[in-house]
Write a protein that binds this DNA or RNA. Structure first.
Lengths: 140, 140
DNA sequence: ATAGATGCAAATGTTTTGCACAGCA
DNA sequence: TGCTGTGCAAAACATTTGCATCTAT
């Protein structure tokens, strides 16, 4: 059963101009626990569409992030990773050794832990928790 | 009353080779709510010691981070910022517009919110919360 | 037809590195 | 004096941008 990814379907509905390049980027990003760097996205996209350029991948990722369809995950100095699981809120578990990432769903709302008195006049919009540790592969 | 910064004092005790360059880097980083980029550290250090090189600043910062004396704070794509307040645990409030940072001390232990069942085999070492919002300056 | 996406290559910004020299312990 | 830090410049990455060309709508 051929099914267009949820991502593509949603984008098409919102009048996103669909091109071959954008299609493969969206396809490459489909799935759970997918956290690729821009360069990895480009490499995988190029397997199916050899002429796709890095610039287009970067542009497309930037736009997907802007539209709230993909999450940009900072990884302590390493290249950013892109997470298609943007529709359900979650946090990240980052391997301090190899940089690999897993999605996690902690209990409780971290925002609730910041007393207003500590906001320094900021309008606080969101809280993101990064758990750091050593992944099973690196521990072995 | 002339007082050597706590940072310098601690480093000297641990046999850190003290040079003019390292001294100004440590001095520039002294204080609360200090979150400078490597380049800002270099600029301020160069005011007092014009011949200091960027490489030395980067090397020094890297070593301070390694020794646990300075915290490296990721800032969503912008240049990393360095936080001398590493001896007391805290989290960060980041302005999504201008990238400025404040230290905050939320209530509760975020680590406690990650059930073991969600650790994916990781040995989880720490949890860091990044609050994102708009700072008073940017809101004005 | 046309607004907008693409590819290429060059520019940008950040951080690291190689190597000869200099300076702290 | 000897190890180690420093400066310089170049390299290494990650990402963005300008511009001519192409294409989905």
């Amino acid at each position: 059963m051929l099914r267009m990814s949820d991502l593509l379907e949603r984008l098409r509905e919102r009048g996103w101009r669909l091109t071959a390049q954008r299609r493969v980027v969206a396809e490459v990003l489909d799935g759970d626990h997918v956290h690729l760097t821009a360069d990895e996205v480009h490499a995988r996209a190029a397997e199916r569409l050899p002429e796709i350029s890095r610039a287009t991948v970067y542009n497309t990722l930037r736009e997907l992030v802007h539209r709230g369809e993909v999450l940009e995950v900072s990884t302590d100095g390493r290249a950013k990773r892109y997470d298609p699981n943007a529709h359900r809120p979650h946090h990240h578990l980052l391997c301090a050794r190899c940089g690999s990432i897993r999605d996690v769903h902690p209990t409780g709302d971290p925002l609730a832990n910041l007393p207003a008195a500590q906001s320094f006049g900021f309008t606080v919009l969101e809280a993101e928790v990064t758990y750091r540790g050593i992944c099973p592969d690196c521990a072995a």
